[in-house]
């Protein structure tokens, strides 16, 4: 039994699982704060993936102890990149949180659909048009004539 392949397999599964859980959370979550947390998780998975790119099982940590002999080292370049990425991630997180605070001050809610509806209404008000929320009555001219099969009365009633 070779334990190296197993360890790398475990770490790859962890990294891919973190990335997919984070992306699923970003796409599926209803609350904006939960979306920020999912973004943090996806970023942690990406960091793990990057460190895993420079990992070798028979190497030591990249610290130069004696000048004479050089044992096999783990690749230190991805580790330096990840060191930067962690700090940038905290910066992104603080920016996202500040945007959330502004959204709450402005709209009073953090639910995704409610915030989207408020923003649509505000944009429509500034642009001076009615809210474009429906496929049946788009803004501006209709580019193609309506299909002959669909009854016009139902479209009128819905819009």
């Amino acid at each position: 039994m070779t334990p190296t392949i197993d360890l790398e397999l475990i770490l790859y599964i962890t990294a891919l699982g973190l990335i997919s859980i984070g992306l699923a959370g970003v796409v599926l979550s209803q609350h904006l704060f939960r979306m920020v947390l999912a973004l943090v998780i996806a970023e942690a998975g990406a960091n793990l993936m990057l460190v895993l790119a420079g990992y070798r099982w028979d190497a030591v940590a990249p610290i130069l102890t004696s000048l004479g002999e050089h044992p096999q080292m783990v690749d230190p370049v991805p580790q330096a990149m990840v060191l930067t990425a962690i700090v940038i991630g905290v910066g992104i997180q603080a920016l996202a949180v500040s945007i959330l605070i502004r959204i709450r001050q402005r709209f009073g809610t953090l639910d995704r659909h409610e915030v989207a509806a408020h923003m649509d209404a505000e944009i429509a008000q500034i642009a001076g048009t009615s809210r474009d929320m429906s496929q049946e009555s788009p803004l501006g001219e209709r580019p193609l004539p309506p299909l002959p099969g669909t009854p016009a009365a139902s479209r009128e009633g819905r819009s």
């Binding site: 920020v36 942690a44 783990v74 580790q79 962690i86 959330l100």
Partner: peptide, 25 residues
């Protein structure tokens, strides 16, 4: 994974500062 510097930074910033920011938010 033999990355002690990354581990230090992750423990201090990822687990400490980040959750502090989120809790204050």
């Amino acid at each position: 994974m033999r990355a002690p510097d990354v581990a230090m930074t992750e423990a201090a910033i990822g687990a400490g500062l980040s959750s502090l920011i989120l809790a204050l938010a």
